[in-house]
C-alpha cells in the first residue's frame, strides 16, 4: 500500500477542508487558510504513513493553521488548541448559505470547532476532543449545542 498522489488528496478532501476553514476562521479568511493548510500538508506529505487517515491529518493541520492565523489577527497571545472568538465581518449577499456560515462563525469557539470537525469533516469525537483539548463527552455536547444554536439563529424554517 502506498500514498495516493497529492492531486488525489486535493480532489478527495479539498472541499471538506475549505468548509472547515470557512467555519473555523470565517468565510473571508477561509481561502488563505486553505492554501496554508495544503502547502504545509504538501511539505510533510511524503513522510506520512500510507495507512493514515488523510482527512483527519489535513483537518489537524487546518486546525493548527487556524489557531496561528486567528492569534496573529488578534495580536494577542491565545493558548494553543483553543479557537478564539472571531469577528464576523461585513454584510455578505443575503443567501441562506452566507447566513449559515456567519452563524457558524459566530458560535462560541468550542461549539464552532466541534460543529466544524464533526458535521463538516466527519471526524470521530475522540479526535475532536484532542483537537479542542477537551473530553469526548464535552466535544459531543459542544457539537449538539452548536447545532441547536444554529437552528435558533436561522429560524424554524431552516432545514438543518
Amino acid at each position: 500500500m502506498s500514498l495516493p498522489s497529492f492531486e488525489q488528496v486535493v480532489a478527495d478532501h479539498g472541499l471538506v477542508v475549505l468548509r472547515v476553514c470557512r467555519a473555523v476562521v470565517g468565510p473571508s479568511d477561509a481561502e488563505d487558510a486553505w492554501s496554508e493548510t495544503f502547502l504545509a500538508a504538501l511539505v510533510a506529505y511524503p513522510g506520512l504513513r500510507a495507512d493514515s487517515n488523510i482527512r483527519g491529518w489535513l483537518v489537524t493541520i487546518a486546525h493548527r493553521k487556524a489557531i496561528d492565523r486567528l492569534r496573529a489577527n488578534h495580536r494577542a497571545p491565545v493558548p494553543l488548541a483553543v479557537l478564539p472568538e472571531i469577528a464576523v465581518l461585513g454584510v455578505e449577499p443575503p443567501d441562506p448559505q452566507a447566513e449559515l456560515w456567519q452563524a457558524i462563525a459566530a458560535l462560541p469557539p468550542k461549539q464552532r470547532g466541534a460543529v466544524a470537525y464533526h458535521y463538516l469533516a466527519d471526524l470521530p469525537y475522540a479526535q475532536i476532543a484532542e483537537l479542542l483539548d477537551t473530553s469526548e463527552a464535552a466535544a459531543r455536547r459542544s457539537a449538539a449545542d452548536g447545532i441547536a444554536k444554529l437552528r435558533t439563529v436561522l429560524g424554524p424554517e431552516a432545514t438543518l
Partner: peptide, 25 residues
C-alpha cells in the same frame, strides 16, 4: 447528520473556488 448539514452548505460556487485554490497551490 453530517451529511444533511453538508448538503445544506453545498454551493455551486465551490467548484470554481476549489479550481482557483488548486491553481494557487
Amino acid at each position: 447528520t453530517p451529511e444533511s448539514f453538508r448538503h445544506v452548505l453545498a454551493s455551486p460556487g465551490d467548484v470554481e473556488t476549489l479550481s482557483h485554490l488548486h491553481a494557487r497551490l
